[in-house]
Design a protein around this nucleic acid. Structure first.
Lengths: 182, 182
DNA sequence: ACGAGCGGAATGAACGTTCATTCCGCCTAG
DNA sequence: CTAGGCGGAATGAACGTTCATTCCGCTCGT
């Protein structure tokens, strides 16, 4: 699964041959089919695993606070921590967002997280802490901006830069908070 | 090219067979090779065409104003207009961002636009109109948020909704402006 | 204590299929 | 009548998947 993660991130689902995954994983091609029914089953298993890992890192044991500002900071920091520690996984999830070969169950993992967020946003709006806009819109802005921030540092082609500094993360967090605060 | 655009958006470069493109375009498979040297050449031509169309729609004949607020509103509205009128093209550009089969020239088209934006941002920062953050970071936030907004409406699975209302676009514009304003 | 024998996981060459690309007969414009 | 562009069957490479075989670790009779 680690091997396929790396390769799928590089060239996408259809761009990677199963024997290639096997080679990178240092196993025989047939071995993959003892663990996964098909290439599609593999990518679904991988998606679910990483999505769940992401969800657990981000929303599990979420601080039981009600102030939107703190909630948002916590959310952002957790996402940043996950995306930094598991860069490939994050890009993979981003890349396979709504891919046609994802099955119903894989999509459901995401739906649950979205609905959870929607509830939190609506509640915060009720307290007048967030802008009055469709929750989906605010979610799109936050998630999109987060992805954009990550991409902006990957693309800084000054080669070996690698990751955002902690200061930049904090800066970005402040920016995006101001986008959604009431 | 229109046929390949639709298909590439649906399933990605490697997920679409050339004969399939031919069928959708209602031409023979061989005919494609009288116009493009290879499948890769086709996707590069398509990328360049759409990226340039996007760039022209967004930055060409840009209002000669210096107030960042107006500039941003104009930028946002043009991007929104383009993305609404050419949804597939926008998704295609998004999807092929940094794909390994894009050649140097195709990447250069994007680089020029980025550098142009970087200059505008730096200038506005000099005038104290934008937050003091790395221009790439601000660009990532804006572009990412824009994409996120688009995605948020595509995903509203209430099926036949289709597009954002004009009011929602305006709402989103205000949100994202507040993210980057000083 | 030990080795023959067993079960099942791993293997990778081989299979049928599908792909990108080529090629040649056909059709049409001039 | 002819040349040029088109179509779509043909082609060989590469794909996902299978399966006969190998390999390994454990069990159990001696």
């Amino acid at each position: 699964m680690q091997a396929s993660l790396d390769l799928f991130v590089e060239r996408g689902f259809y761009g990677v041959a199963v024997p290639e995954i096997a080679e990178r994983a240092q196993v025989g091609a047939g071995t993959i089919y003892r663990h996964f029914e098909s290439k599609e089953a593999l990518v679904n298993a991988l998606y679910r695993q990483e999505k769940q890992r992401f969800a657990q890192n981000v929303v599990a044991s979420f601080p039981a606070i009600d102030r939107a500002r703190e909630l948002f900071r916590a959310l952002w920091n957790r996402m940043a921590a996950f995306a930094t520690a598991n860069h490939a996984a994050f890009v993979f999830l981003e890349l396979h967002h709504h891919a046609p070969y994802l099955d119903t169950q894989s999509r459901a993992v995401e739906q649950r997280m979205i609905q959870l967020f929607e509830g939190v946003i609506t509640a915060a709006q009720g307290r007048g802490e967030l802008k009055q806009a469709p929750p989906r819109l605010l979610m799109g802005i936050v998630m999109g901006a987060f992805t954009g921030v990550i991409r902006s540092c990957v693309e800084s082609e000054s080669s070996a830069e690698g990751y955002l500094s902690r200061a930049d993360w904090k800066l970005a967090e402040q920016c995006v908070w101001e986008a959604i605060r009431a």
